[in-house]
Amino acid sequence: MNRGAATAAQPVMRIQCLDGTRGIAALWVLAGHCMLLTGFSLPVLGSPDLGVDLFVLLSGYLMTYQYLVRRHREDWSQPSTWRAFWIRRFFRLSPLYFPLLIVALIVGAGIYADRVFIDQALGRPLQLEERYADLSIGNIAMHLTYLYGLFPDYAFRTPLPDWSLGLEMQFYAVFPFLIVLHARLGWLRMTICVALAAFAVALGLKALHIRFPMPSFLPLKLHVFLAGILIAAAPKNGKHLVAAIILMAFPYGGSIDALHVVVREALVVAFFLVVNFQERPVVGAISRTLGSKPFYWLGELSYGCYLIHLLILHPVAAWVLAHGGMTQPPSWRFMTVFPVVAIATYALAAVGYHVLEKPGQQWGRRLLEQLKLGGKAWQTTAEKIDAP
């Protein structure tokens, strides 16, 4: 396959370096959570929310990339194209998520007990029990419909890190309308208008004292999606890069300390370089590495890794802390917990990939064929990306 960024005239079928990029994002989240639950700390790597931001940036880029690839054979002014898009995305996320949701709800009480022990051992405030063990019909219904991200009381209420899946589904819901708006205003003006509207909503939430435990409500993270959209819409466009840098500095939607802002800016610049300047020696070497076979599989298993790792991490970290871990330095605890959790997580992610994810995508394609909504269209990297 050719490498390089998509262009309006001749988009490529695959951007191989993005496999490794999403794999790194998932591994970043896993490592960051391992640090948090062992009391260890490293700058940047100890902030899993930055790994989520990288996923969100990727999602905005790849949904736009998919649109550019498909736009000459799919009419995005037609609702049937929107339905096909939504069905593809539903069957990408749900076949693995729903079984894991059932497991998480069943073991939630045990995970909460582990978390209580970890927080007590590390001298941290305890979390509410319903954060892990809410088996109410309302909570289950919210998660089965992906509506939980819209409501502060349900946005972060399972043992899974699934708040970002609700966020992702909200982005998929509005993406066709962004495409329609782009057709009228152009990419840059559309992005400015939508970003300002989202900023106004964020300010309104603050004025009304409505606080989400995680930025699961789309207006709180839409600026990061929009940064990815701008980079995909016009490769090597300096104005779009500047606009994306400004968007990534918006002071809401997560931690806004100086380090987080600097790292987010570095992420958007590095991402812009990797997808647009692969002909340069250094960037090309990085891109080829990210597109190599090991990184390819790291990317393929990234979604499973993201969803599964907390179910493994809590009991492992609690066991280590209970069996002499508190007498050891935090670095020792992390180096003990991390490899065990990583090996178990990726092993289970591989099973989920072959047993649930791949068959789930096939179910979606068959449904599209039956509905005559474009199920035979090729699968690009964009159809495989997920944001944690």
Rank of each mutant, 00 (worst) to 15 (best):
D153I: 11
Y148F: 11
R89E: 00
L105T: 06
M169I: 01
Q78N: 12
Y67H: 03
G138M: 06
D162Q: 07
V116D: 03
P161N: 03
D114Q: 08
S59R: 03
Q127R: 15
I106S: 14
E168M: 04
M169L: 09
A133Y: 14
W86A: 08
A155F: 01
Y65L: 14
F40C: 09
G138V: 09
P99T: 01
M169Q: 14
L105C: 05
P152Y: 04
I111K: 03
W82E: 01
M142E: 12
Y61P: 05
Y61E: 03
I106Q: 09
F90M: 11
S94H: 13
Y67W: 14
Y132M: 10
I118S: 05
P79E: 05
R92P: 04
W86V: 08
I140N: 08
F90S: 09
A113L: 12
R124N: 12
V107D: 06
I118P: 07
G51P: 05
L165P: 07
G60Y: 02
G51E: 00
V103E: 06
I137F: 11
I140Q: 12
D162V: 09
S164H: 01
G51C: 04
F90D: 03
R71F: 06
L50D: 05
D75R: 10
G108E: 02
R73N: 09
L100V: 01
L135I: 15
D75C: 08
L100W: 05
W163R: 04
Y146A: 10
Y97P: 03
F117Y: 14
G149W: 04
L128V: 15
A133V: 09
L68S: 03
M142R: 12
L93I: 06
A155G: 04
P152R: 01
I87A: 07
A141Y: 11
D114V: 06
T81R: 10
N139D: 01
M169Y: 08
G60R: 06
F55I: 04
L128K: 13
L126H: 09
Y154A: 12
D75Q: 02
G51D: 02
E129Y: 13
P159Q: 03
I137D: 15
F151L: 14
D119Q: 11
R70E: 14
V107N: 04
V69W: 14
W76C: 02
E168N: 01
I87H: 03
S94A: 12
L147H: 11
L165V: 04
L150T: 02
A155K: 06
G138C: 12
Y67T: 00
R157G: 02
R124Y: 10
V52P: 07
P95W: 07
T158S: 00
I118L: 13
Y112K: 05
G51S: 00
Y154C: 02
F40M: 13
V107S: 02
E129H: 12
P159A: 07
R70S: 14
F40D: 10
D49Y: 11
P48V: 00
V52D: 02
N139K: 02
I106R: 14
Q120R: 15
Q120T: 07
M63T: 08
L50K: 02
D134T: 10
P79R: 06
E129K: 15
L42Q: 11
L122A: 04
D153N: 14
P161H: 01
R124H: 11
F40A: 10
W86F: 13
D49L: 13
A155S: 10
V52C: 07
F85V: 05
E129P: 15
S59G: 09
G110F: 09
P79S: 08
